[in-house]
Design a protein around this nucleic acid. Structure first.
Lengths: 172, 172
DNA sequence: TATTGTTATACTCTATAACTATA
DNA sequence: TATAGTTATAGAGTATAACAATA
């Protein structure tokens, strides 16, 4: 029988892999992520980092008014939890494919503003409902209270991951 | 303000990236996984796939009696959710470092049995408490009921990921 | 001097297919 | 023919450092 507590393992001398949180996170994330990546790439020719940029820009562009300036690579990196290297590459590819438009920032010429082109906005609008449908499909059968608990745990893990590492390396 | 429901996004035309489940899973898993990977590699010189093999063998070796035969690469691949390619490579590296011992199976000479050497068992015994401590550190502050709910959701997502992809590609 | 962004390099993990040796 | 395992190759993502342009 399988131990059912992902966060409370059983005994001290052994470790049941399928109750080990990092393992389970890896497996489930890989399954979800890969399914979605296939959707992006097969239907829209978009990679995951590219999607994150589209999502950030689509969201901000709609929220910002008509003279919304766009987002810099730095903004996108923070918003999408990506390194600046990945953002630079993905953005360059999207600009080349005319999905993004890049405009120089006269006030600080190191950076530039990116926003969705009309084509990019079209792709964004096509992907969003599919992404929602995907998420709904995944969530179907999960109770509201479980969903909320899950959300709390994810939020907690996000904060805890950094400090857990620090704590463990300390007393090594 | 941040939308707090990871599994129930807000409106149809936009998608808030930080409420999108695959994104959140990716980010949290990456944080957790990378923290742990650093621990394995810096202190024990073990990669994540190698750790999965150690964990599977350590667990089974302890459960099985003295004439437990070992596990085949195929067993390890299934148990650790890895492709046979990864298992083959990781196992070869571990055998070379004398952490695993490989014994031919006379009954079916295509496969062979792997088990932990004394050295391997030592490493396993050193890692397990650290892994438990890591998990406990992560879980500290999570209520028992949230942990159970989280477990149910992870389990659900694992099953749902495959079918969600199928459902979405169907009506494309 | 510090920061934005780009390029180069290397490494890990993944995916696929081709191949072997057995069965 | 099918299976266990290995090897080769290519891809995506990450991490790091070096670099150019600008502040």
């Amino acid at each position: 029988m399988v131990n059912s507590h992902a966060l409370r393992p059983s005994d001290g001398a052994t470790l049941q892999l399928d109750t080990f949180l990092p393992y389970r996170l890896n497996v489930v994330t890989q399954a979800v992520s890969q399914a979605l990546a296939r959707l992006y790439s097969e239907e829209f020719g978009i990679s995951v980092p590219e999607w994150r940029i589209l999502a950030a820009l689509g969201e901000a562009q709609r929220a910002g008014g008509p003279d919304w300036p766009g987002m810099t690579a730095r903004d996108l990196a923070r918003h999408g939890s990506m390194g600046k290297v990945m953002v630079s590459r993905a953005a360059a590819a999207l600009v080349q494919r005319k999905i993004l438009v890049r405009k120089a920032n006269a006030a600080d010429r190191r950076e530039s503003f990116l926003h969705l082109s009309r084509k990019g906005a079209g792709i964004y609008m096509a992907i969003v409902p599919r992404a929602h449908a995907f998420q709904e499909q995944l969530a179907r059968g999960i109770s509201a209270s479980d969903a909320q608990a899950f959300d709390r745990v994810v939020r907690h893990l996000m904060k805890a991951a950094g400090s857990a590492e620090a704590a463990l390396l300390e007393d090594a």
